[in-house]
Amino acid sequence: MAAYFFATPVDIEIKLEGEDLRKQVEMKPEKEKERGISCPVYYDGDTVQGQVVIRVRDGKKLQHDGINVQFIGSIELFYDRGHHHEFLSLSQELAAPGEMRQAQTYEFSFKNVEKQYESYQGINVKLRYFIRVTISRRIADVTKERDIWVHSYRMPPDSNNSIKMEVGIEDCLHIEFEYNKSKYHLKDVIVGKIYFLLVRIKIKHMELSIIRRETTGAPPNQYNESETITKFEIMDGSPVRGETVPIRLFLGGFELTPTFRDVNKKFSTRYYLNLVLIDEENRRYFKQQEITIFRIPEN
């Protein structure tokens, strides 16, 4: 009976104005069997507004100590569960203390909100923005949350030099590789070339991979996680001296985020191009190069 006594006596629905007209992003569920949540995309400076509909169940009356709505930006570090680092918190009162006997609709509006960081869902960290409605009650508060997704355009500096590097093993192998740029937007194409200047080992194949490295926390509680986003075989078989192998890798088909550096002093996400050569004895030779990824407005 106790469980029934404390059952939530109301349903809360949060409607966002114009959400059907916005691009949607699928937010991955916390647990495997749960469904993903579709979130409307907002940008820095966008107004976040809508309606809160509260329905009383079974014709009962609801006594409450006030109703408010918040717009919150928080960073959750998975090794520090229970501690949410809020970098944004705005609040509006929807109703003063009183009682409710029938469904009520309340308007809310957070105008031109600065959203300085982009939403992110990684291995050890989640940066989220959400609307939270709280009905304050003497027994237990009733809350409901609704996530939105934030994209931001942070253009890199104008300089965008090509990358030129050498890989060498004395008297065995000497190659040069070149990528056309060091900074790429999310739908860009990596174009490059590999020159074989000296080849005295039997190379079986060569691949290029994109690696995302997520760093969370600060020493001594710092965690690094690397994941391979894609592997792309660029050569099969042994090259000869003087051979040139072209590279062309389209980024648009992969789940990439922009590069994030020291977000709110909590986490970073960096990307690397990893060139790997494997010889016939399965020895691996590799060279890693950091690249910057950024978001540009979509047409």
Rank of each mutant, 00 (worst) to 15 (best):
C39P: 03
R101D: 04
E178C: 10
D141G: 08
M206W: 06
N124G: 12
R137G: 00
S226D: 12
R212Q: 10
R146Q: 07
N160P: 04
R212I: 03
N161H: 11
T259C: 05
G73Q: 07
M27V: 15
Q222E: 10
R132D: 03
I247H: 09
C39D: 00
S238L: 10
T257K: 07
G252W: 08
I291L: 09
E13L: 01
S136P: 02
F250C: 07
P9R: 12
K265Y: 10
K23T: 04
K181V: 06
L275S: 09
T215M: 05
E176R: 14
E145W: 09
N264P: 00
D11I: 05
Y79C: 04
I229Q: 10
L90H: 11
S209Q: 13
Y271Q: 02
D20I: 05
E255D: 02
Y272P: 00
I67L: 01
A95T: 05
F286M: 04
N68A: 05
F196N: 02
D141S: 11
N224P: 04
P297K: 14
C39T: 01
K61T: 06
E114C: 07
T105V: 15
I148T: 04
K61G: 05
I37Q: 00
Q289N: 11
P156A: 09
V69N: 14
Y43S: 00
S226Y: 13
G122F: 05
V150I: 03
D11L: 06
A2C: 12
M165T: 09
F260D: 00
Y179N: 09
R241K: 15
E170H: 08
S226K: 14
I175E: 01
S74Y: 15
I190C: 00
I211V: 14
Q104Y: 03
T216C: 08
R138V: 04
N264D: 00
V69E: 12
R213D: 01
P29D: 03
E17F: 13
D279K: 15
A2Q: 14
C172N: 14
K183L: 13
Q70H: 15
G242P: 06
K183A: 15
L21G: 09
F286C: 03
F177S: 07
T257R: 09
H174L: 06
K193H: 15
E19Y: 12
G50L: 09
E86G: 00
E76G: 03
I293C: 08
H83C: 07
L186Y: 01
F71M: 06
I12C: 01
F267H: 03
T47V: 07
E290Q: 11
N299A: 13
D279E: 13
L277M: 15
E17R: 14
K144T: 03
V276C: 06
R241D: 09
E114L: 09
H174I: 04
R261T: 08
A140V: 12
I148D: 01
T230R: 13
E178D: 00
T47K: 13
D58L: 15
I37Y: 10
G50Y: 13
H185S: 14
G237P: 03
A218N: 06
G98Y: 04
G242M: 14
P157F: 08
G237L: 04
C39K: 01
R283V: 12
V189N: 11
S152H: 02
D147N: 13
E243F: 05
G122S: 06
Q289D: 10
P40A: 01
L208E: 07
K115W: 05
N299G: 12
H64Y: 09
K111N: 08
I148K: 01
I148R: 02
Y43I: 03
V69H: 15
E118H: 05
G73S: 08
T47E: 11
